[in-house]
Design a protein around this nucleic acid. Sequence first.
DNA 1: CTATTGACATACGGCGCGTATGTGATTTTA
DNA 2: TAAAATCACATACGCGCCGTATGTCAATAG
Lengths: 204, 204
Amino acid sequence: MMEETRVKLIQAARRAFAAKGYAAASMDDLTAEAGLTRGALYHNFGDKKGLLRAVIDQIDAEMVARMRVERDRADTAWLGFLAECVAYIEMALEPEIQRIMLLDGPAVLGDPSRWPNQNECLRATAQTIQALIDEGTVKPVDTEAAARLLNGAALTAALWIAAADDPRAVFPKAVETFKYLAEGLLRTETRLPPSRQKERPQIE
Amino acid sequence: MMEETRVKLIQAARRAFAAKGYAAASMDDLTAEAGLTRGALYHNFGDKKGLLRAVIDQIDAEMVARMRVERDRADTAWLGFLAECVAYIEMALEPEIQRIMLLDGPAVLGDPSRWPNQNECLRATAQTIQALIDEGTVKPVDTEAAARLLNGAALTAALWIAAADDPRAVFPKAVETFKYLAEGLLRTETRLPPSRQKERPQIE
DNA sequence: CTATTGACATACGGCGCGTATGTGATTTTA
DNA sequence: TAAAATCACATACGCGCCGTATGTCAATAG
């Protein structure tokens, strides 16, 4: 089966890219680990970048799924939004996601919004923000801008946590600060209501 | 002079890394452009990463200098802080800074806070935030967390703007949204005072 | 039964990095 | 001041890796 070959190669690539980074991952090695050769790789994905694109597509889909789960579990739309963002930070702590999606991806393929899949993560966040604006919770900001900047802040938070000497000590600081920033999007009249009521005690 | 050799190599490397990216820049080519060979490069910088580190050090210093100038030009500390951040976004629009500092740098050398120079940009921002906390303008947040997340948001904004079809149309959206996020750090009592008075008219 | 296509494997060439070694000039040391 | 050591770089070599060109074998078509 050709589909099976693609799956095996993508899986091997995920491990190799995560462990060694895109540049240092040898295509001879990772194809051998999948029980194949570089011939199969070039036949299915064109070149090394094509393989990276395929891997990123797969991970992106998984990330969106997890974010939706976390969002839908929350009581209010605002809390769902924050949960979505925190889930993003948590995922970004995983070495595989960090290395492939957040470091090598942008460096090799350029701006994430131009990626094959169009980066579902960003679109999902923008949708959530639009719902919050319609609901009257959030100021009428540009949804794409807000989604991107918050994603960027979350990404930076994750990189910081992961590189820290004591990640567990840094994590709450990052999340707390992130929530402050997000609250800057709230309408000034309804400034502290949706979040502070039942979420504060969890933080401090 | 050995110092002159280092300067020539760093200069050639800046151009090569900015134009082709770190991975695609050939050391044979860039040293030849400086009128030297790879021998000089390995003697002075150890390896290719070492040269990148030297280039990053130089750019980082230039960025801090520009940020300080913008900050000191403002009337209040809060406006100075915002000016500093906007300056960061503007600098991040330059292809050289974007490619080297924001894309290849983290991918090749890892987390910016572990860089040789310790990343002066972040330290400078953290200092400014500390001053705002002492002044009573900003909530008593963790200064490193705030500096990092805002830098991350600014970086993302810059990458977005640079990759946009119409950068000039996107720029004001990004800056406006960034300011909203930053205002999430303000103390709730003094929420809209320092910024809205003389800065709003410039934006809309 | 032959021909063609598809899915891979194998073979080849070139490039780029790192290191080992060479060289002329400058500085140290006796 | 002559010999020796050091310095700043150039040259030479080997290795790994990528991309492409070519080969192989099975499946399907005619």
